[in-house]
Amino acid sequence: MIISIFDYGSGNIKSVSKAVESAANNLQKNVSVQVIHDPKKIKEADKIILPGQGSFKQCAQHLRGIPGVVDELNDFVLNKKKNIFGICVGMQLFADFGEEDGGSKGLGWIQGEVKKIKIINPELKLPHMGWNEIVLKETNPLFQNLSEDKHFYFVHSYEFIAQDQINVAASTFYQDEITVAIFKDNIFGTQFHPEKSQKNGIQILENFISW
């Protein structure tokens, strides 16, 4: 199995790669973890991980700045129905639109928009940074075998507001309930960073490999 991490200049690639390798070793499966830059390499992958750090607009511009990458990703995800995992802004890019930095279009795979988290409580700050517990919305193969203490690591100021709540796989509470995981068919994404979330994060990566 080839799991390709697509590097478009907007993600914590080394940490993600090491975490996926650790998950594969735990499963004792024959998995090749590759960091790719060339859109043509997407065809060779069995599964794709799309990381993302920074602003929505910056990440969208970096991604679209690579000729052919959106077409290859659309073919991989929408036509071939292969599994993809978006992390942080990588997940946000699945939306139709992100309002950050004046706004920009997303990939439009899951209907919704990415908007700034509304904070009224002066004791709460943005970005929402550090450990927070998630609440699972439904039985999901990506959330199997987690510990009872479902804390994950976050760094973000914007949230994915899904048009259809059926696509919300998990939430957390920060001022109000906010979406932290998205799921639709072969598309999965988390706002939190599994590569920084210790045992539970590695478990989610193991689940993705086995999915």
Rank of each mutant, 00 (worst) to 15 (best):
F94H: 01
F94I: 07
A95D: 07
A95N: 00
A95T: 01
A95V: 02
A95S: 10
D96V: 03
D96C: 01
F97L: 04
F97G: 02
G98D: 13
G98V: 09
G98W: 06
G98S: 10
E99H: 12
E99Q: 10
E99A: 12
E100Y: 04
E100V: 06
E100L: 07
E100S: 10
E100P: 11
E100W: 00
E100N: 08
G102K: 07
G102W: 06
G103C: 05
G103A: 05
S104P: 12
G106A: 01
G106V: 04
G106W: 04
L107Y: 08
L107W: 05
L107I: 07
L107K: 03
L107D: 06
L107H: 06
G108W: 01
G108Y: 02
W109H: 12
W109C: 08
W109P: 12
W109R: 09
W109K: 11
I110L: 12
I110Y: 05
I110W: 04
Q111N: 15
Q111C: 13
G112D: 11
G112S: 14
G112Q: 01
G112A: 09
E113A: 13
E113G: 10
E113K: 15
V114Y: 04
V114C: 08
K115F: 00
K116W: 02
K116L: 09
I117D: 03
I117Y: 03
I117T: 02
I117P: 05
K118H: 11
K118Q: 13
K118N: 10
K118W: 03
K118T: 08
I119Q: 00
I119G: 01
I119P: 05
I119L: 06
I119H: 00
I120V: 14
I120F: 12
I120H: 11
I120D: 14
I120L: 14
N121L: 10
N121A: 07
N121S: 13
P122T: 04
P122S: 06
P122M: 04
E123L: 09
E123W: 05
L124H: 00
L124K: 08
K125F: 06
K125C: 03
K125H: 09
K125S: 09
K125I: 02
K125W: 01
L126Y: 00
L126R: 02
L126S: 01
L126M: 07
P127V: 02
P127R: 01
P127S: 04
H128T: 04
H128N: 11
M129R: 05
M129I: 09
M129W: 03
G130I: 09
G130T: 02
G130R: 07
G130L: 12
W131H: 09
W131R: 09
W131Y: 13
W131K: 14
W131E: 15
N132M: 09
N132G: 03
N132Y: 03
E133D: 13
E133M: 14
I134D: 15
I134M: 15
I134R: 13
I134L: 14
I134H: 14
V135R: 13
V135S: 15
K137D: 08
K137E: 13
K137M: 11
K137P: 10
E138I: 06
E138T: 08
T139V: 15
T139I: 14
